[in-house]
């Protein structure tokens, strides 16, 4: 257990809403608008947490418990993720398995809360969520197994810390493939374009937004905060594969934070430049990510 690992967790808890601000700002700038303030999500969270709540009479205790379990699971998973060369609070062989399964817990509860409303819309979202996440998880497993093989380590902290400029020079193609796969997984798992459109709420094509239609007040604040934390977690993984955590810890950590902003900006650019894929193409995109990761693994292990 490392106490300094609390710094990345604290950064996640305080700064994660900023990621959405950066994404929206970039999108606005690309579109030639001024856009909402970067701190908009903070204001939204404050406003929502001061409100009351309206519940559907169909819902049960699971609807209320779902968000609580979800946010706790994501925070617990964040305890295992390093940032900018600072190791995570906990690191043990195979810790990424626990991290991914904790995200699975969050998913299960989110889906349960959605199905608890008895709404066909939310059922639709739930159905897609479990499908696409299963594929994304597969790709993520291959990426992390490849990183572990490439760095010959077993913990998230060590394998992300082990992606050095030297390793990038030696294994450029496979690390590039893994990075692409990781970005695709980030886009899919966080309901971003080209997999999902975070701006529309009631289209039949939606996944994540449609599952939280019936949440309001503090509950919806928890939903938004959980998705911010989840985006932070995946962005931290992407940043971890960049060769920026050499040098003194403080500088490396600052580089890590800058990397987070960069990833958010990248998401913003992707969203400005692309349209959402047809739903039928999404599994192909995710399978493609898994295939890229597998090729990356193959090049590392057999090339």
């Amino acid at each position: 257990m490392s106490v300094s690992g609390l710094i990345p967790v604290l950064a996640a808890l305080t700064l994660s809403p900023l990621l959405f601000g950066v994404i929206n700002k970039v999108k606005a700038l690309v579109a030639g608008r001024q856009g909402p303030p970067v701190l908009q999500l903070y204001y939204d969270l404050l406003k929502l947490s001061r409100k009351g709540a309206v519940y559907s009479a169909t819902t049960s205790w699971l609807f209320r418990a779902g968000l609580v379990g979800g946010v706790a699971a994501v925070v617990a998973a964040l305890l295992l993720v390093p940032l900018g060369g600072t190791p995570a609070v906990f690191a043990f062989r195979g810790d990424f398995i626990l991290a991914l399964y904790l995200l699975g817990v969050a998913r299960f509860f989110l889906v349960a809360a959605a199905m608890d409303t008895g709404s066909a819309f939310e059922g639709m979202g739930a159905s897609r969520e479990v499908f696409f996440s299963a594929l994304a998880e597969l790709a993520l497993f291959v990426v992390l197994a490849a990183l572990a093989h490439g760095t010959q380590t077993g913990t998230l902290s060590a394998m992300l810390g082990g992606v050095t400029p030297e390793l990038w020079r030696a294994e450029t193609p496979s690390l590039a493939l893994l990075l692409i796969a990781l970005v695709l997984v980030l886009l899919a798992e966080n309901a971003r374009i080209p997999v999902d459109d975070p701006n529309t709420h009631l289209e039949l094509t939606m996944i994540h937004e449609v599952m939280v239609l019936d949440h309001g007040g503090p509950d919806f604040a928890l939903v938004l905060y959980t998705s911010a934390l989840k985006l932070w977690l995946f962005a931290a993984l992407v940043v971890g594969v960049l060769p920026i955590h050499d040098g003194p810890p403080a500088a490396a950590f600052a580089a890590g934070l800058a990397g987070m902003a960069l990833v958010a900006a990248l998401v913003g650019v992707v969203e400005s430049a692309m349209a959402r894929l047809r739903l039928a193409r999404v599994p192909q995109l995710l399978l493609g990510a898994a295939a890229l990761a597998l090729v990356g693994f193959l090049l590392l292990a057999a090339g």
């Binding site: 009351g52 309206v54 819902t59 968000l67 609580v68 706790a72 503090p218």
Partner: peptide, 27 residues
């Protein structure tokens, strides 16, 4: 994780205490 879940549940309960909580139909 279990502790965090309890903490979050507590936060939610405290937040909603004294605020209007009503029931309606599913959207």
């Amino acid at each position: 994780f279990v502790a965090l879940a309890l903490l979050a549940a507590l936060w939610r309960i405290r937040r909603l205490a004294g605020r209007p909580v009503s029931q309606s139909v599913t959207w």
